[in-house]
Nucleic acid binder design. Structure first.
Lengths: 345, 345
DNA sequence: GATTGTGCTGGTAGCGCTTCCAGGTGTGTG
DNA sequence: CACACACCTGGAAGCGCTACCAGCACAATC
């Protein structure tokens, strides 16, 4: 057996000594139990804080654990408790490039932060829309303690295994069995469209997102509803959230409806693409055509883009927290999206 | 015992059926072994691809595993192999706010992506500079399979436990025992200073980063060396990477050295802060004062900021890969930083 | 004095997996 | 024909932990 060495190297805040294992392996519960002169069961009860333990035993175990710098092995604990050891963030999309996105970065990072105190790790995976078996495969690993789905479809949601019911949350669309957390796309887009209308715009076009994406669809629905209520015709061009498609879409809008006086972008990137194309065509923004985005990315404030807020970090934190705490949750949690009025509209 | 149900729901690419566990728990190795009519040992050998197995056994195990949708429990595997189950990204800094940073987001996200195929999760933790015991505590959990340190100090590096030697990489400063991956700060800053000099600037100031941060220091050293070589005096103000400090620093620079004709920012955020302050003071950029940043964030291209590239994702991917593959690695890997010349300098 | 509790304890059986080892076969060599 | 030497197999021991359970002491009740 290896030696378990320990040496005091300083003091923590609160004036309790902390320990560094200087040699050998980290201490195990067995080491602690032996050092405290109790059984492993008792030590476990004290450390985990479950079940009975006499004050004397408690004290001795605590001291021994401190002295040895004992930290429970979360993997072993998860194994026996059947709890799993990591949270899976699955991002649906047509190509693995969906992961190269600051949106995904924020979701993953926020999730990792929430998971840290629980000893859970986070993993990201691209989920191709046409290979539904992958989700099943990925979640078959019992090490997966929870699931956060991003940009998912309802077909994908139905494949979430029973084992993960109550431990899965979707950022975006939800289902009967999988609750969802999302930004209020309809509200955000709606307030922007109303703002355009109030500013006198009547020929309002929209560059939408991919059709399969439900959250994009909700923005489009809001746009249609408002224009319909006002008795205005809709003008839609399909985009894909990218600036490049935004440029192309702007060209198409002007070709098909040259008198357009406002363009609603499904995202800030789309809107920025639209603006750059308009500028290239010597169309003045917002004088000739007003443009709005969605997300309020840092670039938006720098470019004075009128947009709607999208607190990604808070949403992701909420999603991860729901998964970890498994608290009784409403089917759908919507975060408000506030209009951010700047110069482009 | 629970039933292990399986139902065919489709076909994977390659025309092999895939399976969905419709009820009960995910299949275990025992289930597979029983279904294949071999012992657990044999099944394990086939699945893990280690040791002997007859073609017949191999085939039967593979089939059974496929049929049951078996996926190894990475947590259990890690436990017995002693390998750990997650990678820890520890970000040093003076406050937990260091985690609210797109830089950290990118590092975490990239790490999570690299870890996914290995069945490892990722966790982020803030590492206070004044509580070194925390690193020891965090790494005492055997579930921690590897360590990526960000913005660390050499004092912190010395606390990396022996167990993690060879499984720890620092993004930034390195040490004798912990290799490092980093951007070539000196090269990037150097090329910008040379560019300023070539443009006729002779009174070049710099807004630096926090003193304790080694990577920031290397930029400053390069700045000093180049100015020294040219026989020019240095003009330094301490910043902290933020735009707010950038603004304040710009004021200070102009107060102390009113004839300054160029300001080198330690980061793009710093530079943007500097520029906004200069504009507020009716100082023309770049006519009166040229300004450079560092990082080439998306905002930089939108604001025409001259800067130096910083491929964070690639660096983080490299770091995580080094940890996972434990390959013999050089002490220090430097990624080149290319100057990105735009309008601000 | 027999009975019921209450508080606490350690033994033991696993969680799902790998790995070592003793013990098989079957084929090639002396 | 004995022997070695592949190749292959299943049993069993454990990774570090929790959880169940029988059992202990001691006090309180009838």
């Amino acid at each position: 057996m290896m030696r378990v060495g320990a040496r005091t190297i300083g003091r923590m805040s609160g004036n309790r000594e902390y320990i560094m294992i200087t040699a050998g392996r980290p201490a195990t519960l067995d080491d602690v139990a032996r050092a405290a002169g109790v059984s492993r069961s008792t030590a476990s009860r004290v450390i985990a804080g479950t079940g009975f333990a006499s004050p004397v035993a408690r004290e001795r175990v605590r001291t021994a654990a401190d002295r040895l710098g004992y930290v429970p092995n979360t993997a072993a604990r998860a194994l026996v408790r059947g709890g799993g050891v990591r949270l899976l963030v699955a991002v649906a999309g047509t190509s693995p490039a969906v992961l190269d996105d600051s949106y995904v970065d924020q979701v993953v990072s926020a999730a990792a932060r929430v998971c840290a105190p629980h000893g859970l790790g986070v993993t990201v995976q691209w989920l191709p829309l046409d290979a539904p078996g992958l989700l099943t495969r990925l979640t078959a690993d019992r090490a997966v303690a929870g699931l956060v789905l991003v940009n998912t479809t309802s077909a994908l949601l139905d494949l979430v295994p029973l084992r993960l019911r109550g431990r899965a949350v979707s950022i975006g669309i939800g289902s009967a069995t999988v609750p969802s957390v999302d930004i209020d796309n309809a509200g955000g887009t709606g307030s922007l469209v109303r703002h355009l209308y109030a500013g006198g715009r009547r020929r309002i076009a929209m560059v939408t997102g991919p059709r399969w994406l439900a959250c994009a669809d909700r923005s489009v629905q809001a746009y249609r509803r408002l224009l319909g209520d006002a008795g205005l015709p809709t003008r839609e061009v399909v985009g894909d959230f990218s600036a490049a498609r935004g440029r192309a879409a702007a060209r198409e809008v002007l070709r098909r409806w040259p008198d357009t006086d406002a363009i609603v972008g499904i995202s800030d990137a789309t809107a920025l693409g639209v603006i750059s194309q308009l500028r290239a065509d010597s169309v003045r923004v917002p004088d000739d055509v007003a443009v709005t985005g969605f997300d309020d990315i840092p670039l938006a404030s720098a470019t004075a883009l009128t947009t709607a807020s999208h607190p990604v970090r808070r949403i992701a934190t909420a999603a991860a927290t729901m998964v970890l705490e498994q608290r009784p949750k409403p089917d759908r949690t919507l975060f408000p999206s506030a209009p951010v009025l700047r110069e482009s509209a």
